[in-house]
Amino acid sequence: MKFDTAYSLSLDDKVSIYDVRDLNFDETTDFDSDKDSFLCPSDACRAAFDATNVLSTFNAKNVNYLRTPHFKNKPGTRHIDGCRYASSQKTANGESDDEREENFPSEFVLTRRQYERKTPTVGTEGGLPQEPPKAPSNQATTSHSNSDSTPDKTSVFAHPVECYVSNIDDKDKLKAMPLKIGEHTATYWAFFKKIEYLQDNKGLIYWGRIKAIKDYTSSFRIDFEKKVWLDKKPYSVNVYLSKKLIENYRKRTAFLEQIKAAASSERPLYCFFYGVTPALKQVPSKKNPEQTFGVFSANIENLDHLIIREAPGVE
């Protein structure tokens, strides 16, 4: 069975698989999911076993992924009778459940979640604990979720994007699931807006197929394939990623790996972003600087709120 929430022994809290991915790539945080232990998110189930009764992760460290990230049971993982996380590996229709994100957060929080690490007991040799790890106490976690189920909120942009992309063939579900960002509440279907319709409303999650990524060595420009029509004229759309933005990004290494690979890729890639709305600007022509032409453009302000990925089936 796959699920996107587990208890992290090192963080002493329940985290989503998207939190784990975020921490793995964060260069300001000393975290490695391969060195952590993830236990059943059910408080009752977790309290019944010691800390060696662990889960495994899937796509926790891949910069790019096609199949939905998740935690899953190992062959030897045990659960108490009645634990919701003890079910089989297959869905009711017999298909693998790795392909679809079923855990829809109802709110995308714009302030990044902060984590308080547990202080391990350090031994005299090799920095290892002096005693084997003990099972965590059956305490309610207050920093993120007090329940065993997936948290209703997320601060990792990849989570709502994955919900949208992996469920794109179920428009009724996307039209039924609510999402709140800041003061704005709508459905997932309404919040995700194709780039060519960006004039319909501001403050949404805009997305579109990438036409090209211009690599200026220390900065980048992402050009979209679709154009925006205004006054019966088509205008190109792009977003710009500045040198300063990239240099100060906490996940700089992973981001550069991803965008440089995307720039040279021949596979269909899509860009999703939140926080800015491209506006019509007049820019000078390279051939004739005295002349200008119109383009819808925006400077990205937060790389945590931008994703480049494959998104099969969205068009």
Rank of each mutant, 00 (worst) to 15 (best):
D200A: 08
F25W: 09
P268C: 11
T217E: 15
P234M: 09
K243V: 06
P41C: 01
N288E: 12
A51C: 07
L241A: 00
C45S: 08
I246E: 06
D13Y: 11
V237M: 01
I181N: 00
A92S: 13
L179H: 02
R100E: 05
Q139T: 10
K251A: 07
S87T: 14
T28W: 06
N138I: 04
Y115V: 00
L179R: 00
E101S: 01
V63C: 12
D32G: 04
N73F: 01
K227N: 14
N62Y: 11
K226W: 00
N59R: 04
P234N: 11
T150F: 12
D98E: 14
S265G: 05
K153P: 05
E257D: 14
L55I: 00
A298N: 10
E247D: 15
Y274R: 08
S37W: 12
D13T: 04
L128D: 10
A140W: 04
T185V: 10
Y249I: 00
F220I: 00
R221G: 05
Q199C: 12
S242W: 09
S265Q: 03
M1N: 12
I300S: 01
N64Y: 13
N93A: 13
E102Y: 13
H144G: 14
Q291P: 04
Q291W: 07
P133F: 08
K180D: 08
I168G: 01
R78I: 03
K14I: 04
N93W: 09
T57K: 06
S242N: 03
A86M: 06
R67Y: 15
Q139W: 13
S16H: 02
Y240H: 15
K243F: 07
T29H: 14
A262R: 04
K244S: 11
T142W: 14
P105F: 02
V165W: 00
G203Y: 14
H144I: 04
G94F: 07
F71I: 06
F25A: 02
S10K: 07
D215I: 07
D152L: 12
S8Q: 05
K251P: 01
N248V: 01
R78D: 07
E196V: 04
H70P: 02
H305S: 11
R46D: 04
W189H: 03
N167C: 05
N73M: 11
